[in-house]
């Protein structure tokens, strides 16, 4: 009898410790990265690092602005492409598609999610890059090699389709049928009901889906690295090459480490990425809380 109670107690405490251990990983990673990037931070002012646009490690210039703009622009392009497409597709799947179509499409989307990023990169090089260099670029009178933030954004958009669609479908399916019936019974059409009732009710969930997909997009490395050119410059147009933070780390870590502060700079890049993602999630959580309060 007593043994059973002891076991219960033991389980409760062990599991709590395991949970804390998982959570503390984030903190440890953050602290570790901070300590590792201290040499650079001691040597140069944080503001100069963040706002500097020259990346010239040999001269000791570590301006991160090109990488910040690279990351943000590639992610933004991916979002602009993916969010509306995924929203409309999920609306179609939930509200209009036959049960059979839905049953076929959803598993297919999950397969899309399981494809390794490097394959998306190859697809980007074989298909997206030539498309932009040969067809889309010339339309806008901008000759380019195709390795650009636009290519990165397109590849990234395709990569976040699955997560976005599956969450959005789930969110739309939580809308009670009786709420739809309430709108329909007033003589509203299906589309009016979707626009004015369903999307309004589902808004917090839809935003959450976009946030999750964005968080994933921020950190995506290989596929983007393969198509976006990797030139440390601030991209001025969609057809310019860019250099996102994850690509910077993956391309250079372990090489040229003899250059002073170079490893500290890469660690700082990692810390920066962590901070961007953390802040982004924090802000979206706050916005979501506000929205849920209102709903």
């Amino acid at each position: 009898m007593r043994l059973r109670i002891l076991k219960d107690l033991w389980i409760r405490h062990t599991f709590r410790i395991l949970l804390l251990l998982t959570l503390s990983m984030v903190v440890f990673i953050g602290i570790g990265l901070f300590i590792k990037s201290l040499p650079l931070l001691k040597d140069q002012n944080l503001f100069t690092i963040l706002s500097g646009s020259t990346w010239s490690p040999l001269k000791g210039q570590f301006g991160f602005l090109p990488f910040i703009t690279g990351t943000v622009s590639v992610t933004l392009i991916a979002l602009v492409i993916a969010a509306p497409l995924c929203l409309l597709s999920s609306i179609y799947l939930v509200e209009y598609a036959s049960a059979l179509l839905k049953k076929t499409v959803l598993p297919l989307i999950n397969v899309l999610a399981a494809i390794p990023p490097v394959l998306y990169g190859v697809w980007g090089i074989l298909f997206v890059v030539p498309l932009i260099s040969n067809y889309i670029g010339p339309i806008f009178g901008s000759p380019n090699a195709g390795y650009s933030i636009l290519s990165g954004g397109i590849v990234l958009a395709v990569m976040i389709f699955p997560i976005m669609i599956s969450i959005m479908v789930e969110v739309l399916e939580t809308i009670p049928p009786d709420l739809k019936a309430a709108s329909l019974s007033l003589g509203a059409t299906r589309w009016e009901t979707i626009q004015k009732v369903i999307l309004k009710k589902a808004r917090p969930g839809i935003i959450a889906a976009i946030v999750l997909a964005t968080s994933r997009a921020f950190g995506e490395t290989i596929a983007v690295l393969m198509v976006c050119g990797n030139i440390p410059q601030i991209p001025k147009s969609l057809f310019d090459a860019g250099y996102p933070i994850p690509a910077l780390i993956a391309n250079n870590f372990g090489e040229m480490m003899s250059i002073p502060h170079y490893d500290a700079a890469l660690m700082f890049a990692a810390l920066l990425l962590l901070t961007i993602i953390f802040l982004f999630n924090l802000i979206s959580r706050l916005i979501l809380n506000k929205l849920e309060e209102k709903a």
């Binding site: 009670p176 009786d178 709420l179 019936a181 309430a182 709108s183 329909l184 019974s185 007033l186 003589g187 004015k196 009732v197 309004k200 009710k201 709903a295």
Partner: peptide, 15 residues
């Protein structure tokens, strides 16, 4: 449907 008001099992106010 416009000709018929519907009152469901639980109230479902629109959002």
């Amino acid at each position: 449907r416009k000709k018929m008001g519907l009152l469901s099992q639980r109230p479902f106010p629109l959002p």
